[in-house]
């Protein structure tokens, strides 16, 4: 599903964010990428989204080498994945319903499909009763649920989350992670970059630990690994 082949990324500032990394994530897996701030996990996520290009190596998504993907095809790549950010990235002037419907509109979904699908996913994330609310009327956890709903509304094959619980209290963070787990159980591959140790330990999923741009641990069913962690 996702394959990194000897991938390195050096920014123009000279910072080596990712060094000679190999990684393979299979269909239907739930994978945590853990490490401290600046360890390179966000760069890995950005490279999957093709927001950042690797300096060396190849990245394959669904068997396709995305490092060779022309810029004009990037939107279609992103349609195959849902994305969740730490800061929710909701549109403040749109209701919960509109925020979710928006993701369907941009891909040209027909109005009938939007009308049917949006309530479905809102119900899945437990926000059907808040569909007319605006983001500023919601709690942080609820906002992140909207973001998750938006990420899965187009039935993507994978969901990428970059620090999805970073702005949430532990209890809400756990709720979001459970939601991601539910989504994974339905067959969606989930990749979560995080440094939320407690959650990672509790979930007992595959954990890829990275430090200074190097993967130093990859455990199939593990907890948060802190080796090499400064």
């Amino acid at each position: 599903m996702i394959r990194f082949e000897e991938v390195s990324k050096t920014y123009t500032t000279g910072v080596e964010a990712v060094k000679n990394t190999n990684l393979e994530i299979d269909k239907g897996e739930f994978v945590f990428i853990v490490g401290s701030s600046g360890c390179g996990k966000s760069t890995m996520i950005k490279m999957i989204l093709k927001e950042v290009e690797p300096s060396e190596g190849r990245i394959y998504i669904n068997g396709k080498d995305i490092t060779r993907l022309p810029k004009s095809r990037v939107p279609y790549l992103r349609r195959s994945m849902g994305i969740v950010f730490q800061d929710f990235r909701l549109l403040e002037d749109k209701t919960v319903y509109e925020n979710v419907a928006y993701a369907m509109r941009v891909i040209g979904a027909n109005p009938r499909a939007i009308k049917k699908q949006v309530p479905n996913v809102l119900s899945l994330v437990g926000l059907l009763n808040k569909e007319s609310a605006y983001p500023n009327e919601l709690s942080g956890g609820e906002q992140q649920r909207v973001a998750v709903a938006r990420a899965i509304v187009n039935n993507p094959v994978m969901l990428i989350a970059d620090e999805p619980t970073g702005n949430l209290d532990p209890e809400t963070a756990w709720e979001i992670m459970s939601l991601l787990n539910d989504i994974n159980r339905r067959g969606t591959t989930v990749v979560v970059a995080t440094h939320a140790k407690e959650i990672v330990d509790k979930m007992e999923k595959r954990v890829v630990a990275i430090d200074k741009g190097v993967i130093y641990s990859d455990i199939k069913k593990g907890g948060y690994v802190e080796h090499g962690y400064n």
């Binding site: 279609y76 349609r79 909701l90 928006y102 941009v106 891909i107």
Partner: peptide, 10 residues
């Protein structure tokens, strides 16, 4: 930027 992330074309 959000539109771009959810796969909108230019």
């Amino acid at each position: 930027s959000i539109m771009k992330y959810v796969g909108a074309t230019d």
